[in-house]
Design a protein around this nucleic acid. Structure first.
Lengths: 168, 168
DNA sequence: GACTCGTTCTTGAAAGTTGAACTACATACG
DNA sequence: CGTATGTAGTTCAACTTTCAAGAACGAGTC
């Protein structure tokens, strides 16, 4: 990015870009709200908490280290601590000590947690389908995937050394 | 949606859909986080608050009724009340009584608020550009717009009578 | 061992969000 | 009018997220 105090006129969005950007903001907030409400109603937790349970359900022995879980859910460790505390109160997750690193903690999905997931996953998939995949043409699904992957590339939390190639 | 207790196996996402859905979740959360941090750093407020100022800046006399603003920002009136209270403390917005409806309130963008917007808009546009438009091919911008419009259609808060056509 | 430094995870307080209850005013209808 | 019902906005309590410490351990160095 340019130096501070850069006085050059910024490149504003053109018409097509504006329309797309507005549509993006509109659609993504509507979908996030929709899924949040759907899951709050049917599973008693917000979308992000549900995502945590899903991650755990797919992990070996249904458990993950806190830091790994935080990374894959793209939230801070602090936020995760609070979230896991809440999920633990609900009985869907338990914490377990890590024998090889006494600082470490695992979050493990309980059987109750797995049950909640089994009960609510169909409704959640249905909601996603209904909002997205049942409304898009197959090409559009591919296009969306490609676009999202491009976006993610540009935003990926940088490898600490990635911007220091001259040091290698 | 089907009746409760529906025992039929739900249609899960196929491979392509899974990949796209994951990419969508990944990319949208990364972008939202990125913009939130960028605006928190450069403008001292989260993305949604910035959006409120933008809406106001484009409205006639730089003011809108609370309910209208809430609708166009797609947030609850409750959330808006808190947000405007906060923006009022920062001096960027003021509340004004509505003469024609004594229940009503306008939120009006102050000159200070307008200044913040002028100062920070270039950086924000640059961030959006860098994350999105500078990385997408022109066709992809169009595709993204089309896809987001389809999504929004399916999620649009329903007109109360929209699903009761037989009553007209 | 003792020192330093980095990592893991938690904590507490402040800020933000939600959904329901509530106040005040508007509108419709008899 | 008067009463009922709806709408605009705020407020409260419960919950979630953020930010800035902080406690506990690991790893390297002397």
């Amino acid at each position: 990015m340019g130096p501070m105090g850069d006085m050059t006129e910024p490149r504003w969005l053109d018409d097509e870009e504006q329309r797309t950007w507005r549509a993006y903001l509109h659609a993504t907030t509507l979908l996030e709200d929709h899924l949040d409400r759907q899951l709050q109603r049917d599973a008693g937790m917000p979308h992000i908490y549900y995502g945590l349970l899903v991650q755990l359900s797919q992990a070996p022995r249904r458990r993950l280290r806190m830091t790994e879980l935080a990374k894959s859910a793209k939230i801070t460790r602090s936020r995760l601590s609070h979230a896991i505390a809440r999920l633990e109160k609900s009985g869907w997750v338990v914490r377990e000590n890590c024998p090889s690193d006494k600082r470490g903690q695992f979050a493990r999905l309980t059987d109750e947690g797995m049950d909640v997931l089994r009960r609510t996953a169909p409704g959640h998939v249905a909601a996603v389908r209904q909002a997205l995949f049942d409304r898009l043409a197959p090409e559009q699904v591919e296009q969306l995937g490609a676009i999202m992957r491009v976006m993610a590339e540009g935003l990926e939390p940088a490898d600490p050394d990635a911007d220091l190639p001259w040091l290698r």
